[in-house]
Design a protein around this nucleic acid. Structure first.
Lengths: 248, 248
DNA sequence: CGACTAATTGATGCTATTCAACCACCGTGG
DNA sequence: CCACGGTGGTTGAATAGCATCAATTAGTCG
């Protein structure tokens, strides 16, 4: 009973084998931050279970629910968000392939935020116990997880500053840049072009403006030749100008 | 070379004994989250060294500097912030007595944000090595630190949402409420009244608006009998109405 | 072809910024 | 003692940025 924009259909798939690639993005992501051994990688590949396909705009966890298990985004884009009684939502962070919704949250008795898919996603569950054990027994994995979390926190700080200081144009450009850059780091996008499977409503909830305004800013960016956005494909046409406009 | 609003005068005091109370706020703060033994408390009291008195609006760490040691706020209010080349600042989080600037930041090669005092402060240094050792050898302390950090992250999420969703009035009220509530939890303020040693510029940098607007919102809040703010003393006169206006 | 979701447009008004003063308080030094 | 400089608070007018409401127009999919 959170808001009107949530539907709960969740297509279940038959359990898949441990090596069908769903741990791929996770280990690729973690491997960036610390060298992982073959054993580490094998353990990681056994971590994620019960992979499901989830349609866009579906809640995985709702605000106020008890904390059960963690989620891994295998494919697609999800997000953590806060929602008011009025229905207004603010997206806190994007979860891209290989991202694990914060493992430390186990200590919270109740979630103070929700998790929802933005695009079509493949989502795997990660049992708390298995995750804790992995952290306890595999220092390299634990280190990689810590560094990954530090990276997410740095992004969160940057977002907070952008929301406080920047105008809508800047914030939208930062959003685009973040998605392209992170996707590029995962090998899922070119340096200046990639998928952008978000609706304008999603973008508005990310950058804290109305959808109407997102639409107008977007048109201005297209007209000025800064970006190209057709269907769900985004191209950044003026990277230098973008980095200037988006603030340091 | 960050901005015009930084002065570096920092009055040094002669080293004080380990038990003169400067670890008081820290252990009181941590003790809330996990039971600490007498040994734990003794170890904590030896942690903070080189306490100094720092005047208001002084940088402790500047953006871009290498990460050296951690800081403990013994008295007063400090803050972490991000500053743009334009001079615009956004405060990310408040550091109240007993707060330690994030210990995990040791892993960052360079600070992506600065730390500065807002009011007059007593600040102690915490050597990284001693902190790491304490975490490694005293599980109760490590747990308390983790929980304290989780609490800070939850506050950060709430702020992000407020910046994205709320109007200036709401954000200012949330700021007031946060300060009073946290001060109250430390025994440094009544339930509805306490010190507010911030300038309107500081408030503006917290809630992401101009100082002029802070001033006007403040007047409206006074006129409507919501708050009373004289000198640096704040009283919340309508707690129920405040909680409504400040959003859930 | 409907039925739905997403994108677009226009008109209107509120919220907040900006610039530029001006005032009030406080501590300092002549 | 008062003149002085500095910081912080207050005010006004003009304007920019953005929200809101209400329609209308693509797309998309069964």
């Amino acid at each position: 009973m959170i808001g009107p924009t949530t539907n709960q259909a969740m297509g279940q798939r038959p359990p898949t084998g441990p090596l069908d690639g769903m741990a791929g993005p996770l280990s690729r992501r973690l491997g960036v931050h610390a060298p992982l051994s073959g054993d580490d990688l094998a353990a990681l590949s056994r971590l994620a279970v019960r992979e499901t396909v989830v349609v866009a705009h579906t809640d995985l966890v709702r605000q106020g629910e008890p904390a059960e298990n963690a989620f891994l985004v295998v494919e697609g884009i999800a997000a953590s968000y806060v929602q008011r009684a009025s229905g207004a939502r603010q997206i806190l962070a994007l979860l891209l392939p290989g991202d694990l919704c914060d493992p430390d949250l186990a200590h919270l008795e109740h979630w103070d935020h929700g998790i929802a898919t933005l695009s079509h996603c493949r989502i795997a569950r990660v049992p708390r116990a298995a995750l804790e054990e992995l952290i306890a027994t595999r220092p390299a994995v634990a280190l990689a997880l810590r560094r990954t979390k530090l990276e997410a926190e740095a992004r969160s700080r940057a977002w907070l500053a952008a929301l406080g200081i920047g105008h809508a144009t800047e914030r939208l450009l930062r959003l685009f840049r973040e998605i392209i850059d992170r996707m590029h780091a995962l090998g899922l996008a070119d340096r200046n072009e990639g998928p952008l499977p978000l609706t304008q409503v999603d973008m508005a909830e990310c950058i804290g403006t109305s959808t109407v305004h997102v639409n107008r800013v977007l048109q201005e960016l297209r007209r000025s030749g800064m970006v190209e956005l057709k269907g769900s494909r985004l191209r950044l046409l003026d990277r230098a100008g973008l980095d200037t406009l988006a603030g340091e």
